[in-house]
Design a protein around this nucleic acid. Sequence first.
DNA 1: CAGTTCCGGAACTCGACAGTTGCGGAACTA
DNA 2: TAGTTCCGCAACTGTCGAGTTCCGGAACTG
Lengths: 198, 198
Amino acid sequence: MVNPGRKRDHSRDADILQATLDVLAETSYADLTIEMVAARAGAGRGTIYRRWTSKDELILAAVACADQGGPESGEFSDTGSLRGDLLAMLDPDWLGSGERRMRILSSLTAMMGRTPDAFAAVSQAIVEPSVAVYQHLIQRAVDRGEFAKSADVAALAQLIPAMATYRALFMRLPVELPFFESMIDGVLIPALESQRSS
Amino acid sequence: MVNPGRKRDHSRDADILQATLDVLAETSYADLTIEMVAARAGAGRGTIYRRWTSKDELILAAVACADQGGPESGEFSDTGSLRGDLLAMLDPDWLGSGERRMRILSSLTAMMGRTPDAFAAVSQAIVEPSVAVYQHLIQRAVDRGEFAKSADVAALAQLIPAMATYRALFMRLPVELPFFESMIDGVLIPALESQRSS
DNA sequence: CAGTTCCGGAACTCGACAGTTGCGGAACTA
DNA sequence: TAGTTCCGCAACTGTCGAGTTCCGGAACTG
């Protein structure tokens, strides 16, 4: 008799965390109740509390696995130009997953401001991956000689995530392809090109 | 006997709203309690409920008068160049009041996402005034011929507020003069100048 | 089988906070 | 002065949700 009893169904972990993110994307940290998550996941509250000790821990765990689904962890198609690379990356369903992440971001900003753990979790799962995509593509363009080496890649990598987040959260406008094109052609690339002469 | 009894001391309104903003800047919408506001303002809860019917109404009223203190409602010094105008505007204590507004913004993002009233209040009191400053100065620079008429002033006016908000809220880095200089010289002005040729 | 641990669900405890009421006192009116 | 309304304060009610416990049943072990 080493491990008697019914096995814990760990496939439900993902369901519950996914339900947590769903509720988080629709309401907010304060309005999220364990009951909502349980109902959405078709689970009992006891099942949730057997796996995570508190509401905060559940949310942190859910946020920690919110970076799946984006194209950021794979390779990026190399079209030969930064503009082409960016548009190729944006094309698929990045926009939808980006929108979802922004709503989660919105629900968690208040929590981020208080607990350092929450800030770290959101930063690693949502903020940093978004910036990293742009950082990677811009750096590659600089390395291939498309722009000057003196470009401030780290700062410019934040440009489009920042503008998209601002637009979605604080202006409630859709963040779609025309917006990205406008930012790429009207801001990002001019900023990179201005480094040539200086 | 037309108006008997002790007069309501309306000078306390401002104290209470200010205390509300203070608490909001330090905690969050969900964590704010009427008790905290009352204690901070040196008032009783009854006094607050006699003036605003609910916690939500109090917060909306407080946010609605959060745009005071900034230099945005007056004239701006005209240094002859956009760069000079922007730095002149930033110099005083705009940075401190901007930091405070960002913390309030952070505390209210979740509330904004749910109630349209809250979104409208935050938008009018915090988001729009910030953008309006840049919009005004950039438009003036375009009008004086510093940049091409074809520049997308409305979009570029969001640039610095968006980058500053992103930096403060989601990266927790200080938003100080070197950052603004970097944004003005490295992004905003190059984007405006790129319109010359197109 | 018997014993154990899981599951969903429902009932429960408990603390926190919104909002209310009443008290003693101060300010105002007539 | 008498009557009214404000004030700060403290006690009170009601609700809501976190976290716990128990139930009947299912899944696993030996």
